[in-house]
Design a binder for these strands. Sequence first.
DNA 1: GATAGTTTCATACAACTGTTTGAATTGCAA
DNA 2: TTGCAATTCAAACAGTTGTATGAAACTATC
Lengths: 220, 220
Amino acid sequence: MASDHTRSAILAAAERLYADRGFGDVTLRDIVAEAGVNLAAVNYHFGSKDELIAELFVTRSIATNRERLRELKAAEEEGGGRAPIEVILRALVGPTLRGCLGPENQRSTAARFMIRASIESVPPIRRIKNREIDHLRKFAGAMRRSLPDRNDVDIYWGLNFALAMAHHTIRESERLTKLSEGKCDLDDVEDVVARVVSVATMALTAGRAEAKAPSKVAAR
Amino acid sequence: MASDHTRSAILAAAERLYADRGFGDVTLRDIVAEAGVNLAAVNYHFGSKDELIAELFVTRSIATNRERLRELKAAEEEGGGRAPIEVILRALVGPTLRGCLGPENQRSTAARFMIRASIESVPPIRRIKNREIDHLRKFAGAMRRSLPDRNDVDIYWGLNFALAMAHHTIRESERLTKLSEGKCDLDDVEDVVARVVSVATMALTAGRAEAKAPSKVAAR
DNA sequence: GATAGTTTCATACAACTGTTTGAATTGCAA
DNA sequence: TTGCAATTCAAACAGTTGTATGAAACTATC
């Protein structure tokens, strides 16, 4: 088994580069240069570039999901099996937002890598990603227990919108800052979390009777 | 000037392939094969691959923005300079949603291409994309006129969340269908539009006093 | 300290990329 | 028809990619 030093140096370098520049722009030669190892080391230790990406993604996936589920479980136990919807949503979007936003030096490479993975969707990742549905289903279940009056469709749409706001805000944080001329403070992570959770909660709890039934006045 | 046949064949083929498979996976040889023209034609007519992408994006950008602004203008004129916030939001997200969702055969290649462009962000597009901020500012202005009591920060966050829900729903439509076991009907475009608009409107109009001021009870 | 197994290294390889070239072909005006 | 420009084409180019090779360097066991 030896030192494992090269292996982990490659993993760390690859994660850093992918997080910063995306999958498309990072070559094996970039990775080995950043890691300070030989070009052949990647194929020796991981088999192929795709397997390196896959290992990176699986590891981080498990960690992120565990973190989110930990918050969720704790909340549900505290509430005797039923957690407030805000807390569930916070467990869903909080970890990712905290990892990806905030002052530059505090951002986690892991979280930024995961966002890249959720955006670019290279083949090795796409293959694994289907498992994430099972993970989201656990949140859907908790939400259903929290809001027993809501039907499934609304639950799923709420879940979808919560993830939408979190991910989009991360991806387009630069543009939002520019658009608002700095008025939207993306470094105040807890405020961002509060905003996302607040809107998602409204989406899930408001009696949105007017959205489906009525006249559907199209603006065109 | 001649027939221009080759030029437009390339544009059409490129847009189709990029919309379907993304920028990363489509090579010049794929494009010319699809278009039925010679490999050198791209460089002859457009100068380079990047310029081809740029032309495609600029054309579609202008068209999409014009469509959105048309709806916006009409609404504001009808309201004497002030349009209801729902109508503004509908003008913002409606055209894109209608183009990208709905029954397979009705989806517009142009809209799907634009979504790709908004996701993958290759260099030639990134350069152009900054202009889109000016376009969004026009919507921010209309929203401000519609909701004069709201401060700018809330306006920008509402705009951000509206785009977030629309784009994310398009990008992850397949996953949402799978997650909800088909219960969320992505083919009913007007329902999707209504949901996005409804939630975004709540985000912009609800007295969300609880989000900023209070105790900030973090779940961790 | 010799040996066997693991790991590193420089280098080469084959495949693919966007681009260029220069000759062939076309279309059209005189 | 002749002549000239615009366009198409097959072929080659130079660069980059991920991967494979076989020799060298290391490591630990006896």
